[in-house]
Amino acid sequence: MFKLNFELANPKRFMDLSAKLLPWIWVIAVGLLGTGLYMALFVAPPDYQQGETVRMMFIHVPAASMATMVYMFMAASSAVALIMKHPLADMAAKAAAPIGAGYTLLALITGSLWGKPMWGTWWVWDARLTSVLVLFFLYIGYMALWEAMEEPVKAAKAAAVLCLVGVVNIPVIKFSVEWWNTLHQPTSLAKMDGPAIHSSMLWPLAIMALAYGALFVALLLLRMRTEILKRRVRSLQLSRARAAVQAGAA
């Protein structure tokens, strides 16, 4: 495990390996997404209470769970980046942020679209919606901090500190918001006595969750590759500028 870790830490090795893996991950992601969407939109039965709007759930629930999972991934990468000075870890955290923000926004928008026919309003200040909104703000702040700092090494450290502060605060925010107001239906998947959902709906949901996960990995690798190339371009430009200055001085 550790050996693999160190081999992957080498950007060159990472570029080689990810170039080989990426097409396959794309195939898996697109395949799962296609199957999941087909099952969710055409195969799964309409709910006896919610009717056809229940299909929104297959898009919404996995997005909402990805929203928190991606943040956890970012926090873990940030911790690795700060503690072990792993060269790829801060790139992973940076690359994950917009994807996580995208899933969060998707969860917010689909939730809002679902809320209109179900609750009769686009938005309610209910506990879960509100904490997802705050999570979205945390993502935005994280990305804004990256953008604001020019030097990648410094920006990486600052963003990592912010991400870890955020992850410490997420449980507190979640608890406070839940304590403040609760209207959202409690989760029906993670229960001690098995999921309270019929298998005809559970399968599309599970496939969609896997599809979102695969899509995340594919986009993450793609963004990390882009980031490595960007940094190479940056260092090339810097050395070229330095050479030009030295030539001018001589």
């Binding site: 702040g141 912010l162 507190v172 925010i173 406070s176």
Partner: peptide
């Protein structure tokens, strides 16, 4: 303010 306000929610 973008960084701090979300953390002030609790």
């Amino acid at each position: 303010s973008l960084l701090v306000l979300p953390l002030q929610v609790p």
